[in-house]
Computed example of a mutant assay.
Amino acid sequence: MMKVLHKNPDPHTWKGRAADSVQYWHQAVKCLDNLQIKDAHGVKKIAILGYAADEGVRRNQGRIGAKFGPASIRRMMGSMAFHLPENVRILDYGDISVLKEALEPAHQLLQEKTFSLLKNHHFPILLGGGHDLAFAHGSAVMDYLEQKNESFGIINLDAHFDLRPLLEGKGHSGSPFLQLFERAKASNLEFHYFCLGIQSPANPKELFEIAKKTGTWWMDMEDFTLSNWGQIQNNLDAFLGKVNKVMLSIDLDGFSSAYAPGVSAPSPMGFSPELALKVLDYLAKSKKLISMDVVELNPTFDQDNATARLAARCVEYLARRLYSTE
């Protein structure tokens, strides 16, 4: 059997200006080896775990290169100013990747470790890598909340439904939410999925039919705009009213390529960073957000690290708003 790889975090990835006190993220991050996940009473913990793999993207006929995404995001995060409270710890647990085509064992390890992070009171932030990581991410959240008898929802900022059927029985970057639907169905759990930013040219009619059959909520790109924030907020209110907790998934290809050129499936259309941040702020204030992933960064096609910086800013903004609303 092909081996799943875990790579310890590289402290040299975290760089930035020198300061006598903690002023920047690179100073606040603590790198932990060997995926040794532990709890610490009274300490709030943000866990960074990378998924340095793009086999799922290859299977879905996308542009490979997303396996370099987690390192690129970390490099941009390191120099950001740090504004979180002193009792919040930032813990980097390194990257999970695969050898050759061994995608499913990597998903299993990612699921197990994300579950452990939740159980040990971390807020997981998963850095991709292909969007197939959302299957492992969502499976972990589903298992964790099922044990607590709490309902579960997914909010996905994306141009695509990612509800595609398996290919030759195997998952890929276009199938994670259909896989989660089937997993929930097998466990007699309700499936609540809301996708914001759907672009019709990127989703054939079959996927709209699957979305209807799975009870998926969505907003088209034409409606997912700043000028329509009132309706967006109403829809979010209605969705959040159905669940106890939600996981957030941000596919960077949902942004216009003017903001995010370095992705697996770029588009000149898409939503703006300003709108995405309004959604992040709303979710932080809801007190229902349990975890987050940012996926599909492809540094090979990035320009002046614009996409990596955008991903880093999304992570920083959500973390800051999450703990400023307590």
Rank of each mutant, 00 (worst) to 15 (best):
F239R: 12
P70R: 09
F239T: 06
L32S: 12
D158W: 08
S291T: 09
L127S: 08
F255A: 00
P268D: 08
K242V: 08
G65C: 02
S173Q: 01
A311Y: 06
S291V: 09
S151E: 10
G174M: 01
T225L: 09
F239P: 08
I250W: 03
P70V: 10
P266H: 06
D162R: 00
K7W: 14
A134S: 15
N8S: 11
H41P: 13
A28E: 03
I48E: 09
D162E: 06
A28P: 10
A102N: 10
H131I: 01
L167C: 00
S227I: 15
A140M: 07
I198W: 06
K212V: 06
V43Q: 11
F194W: 08
D223K: 13
A66D: 01
A265S: 10
K15H: 15
S286E: 05
W229L: 06
F271R: 04
L318V: 07
D158N: 05
F115P: 02
V263Q: 02
K205R: 11
D132T: 02
N203R: 04
G270M: 02
A40I: 14
F191L: 00
A265N: 06
H12P: 03
L297N: 02
F68D: 12
V29I: 13
N244Q: 11
S227P: 12
E222Q: 14
A53I: 14
Y93S: 08
A47C: 10
S200Y: 14
H160P: 01
G50F: 07
L126A: 04
K45C: 05
G69H: 06
G169F: 00
G129E: 02
D95N: 12
R75G: 13
K38A: 12
E101V: 04
I155S: 11
H41A: 15
V57N: 01
P9F: 10
L322H: 13
I73C: 00
D92E: 08
V141K: 12
Q179C: 05
Y93Q: 04
V263C: 02
K170P: 00
L289Y: 07
E55S: 07
F82M: 13
A40R: 15
A52W: 12
L133E: 05
V29W: 08
Q179A: 03
L133D: 05
L5T: 11
L157H: 04
S267Y: 07
S257Y: 04
I155T: 06
L277I: 14
V98P: 06
E274K: 12
D92I: 05
L103A: 01
K278P: 07
A284M: 03
P273F: 03
L207V: 05
G78H: 09
F123D: 02
Q199D: 04
I90Y: 10
E316A: 15
L99P: 11
P273A: 10
W217M: 09
D253K: 04
G42L: 08
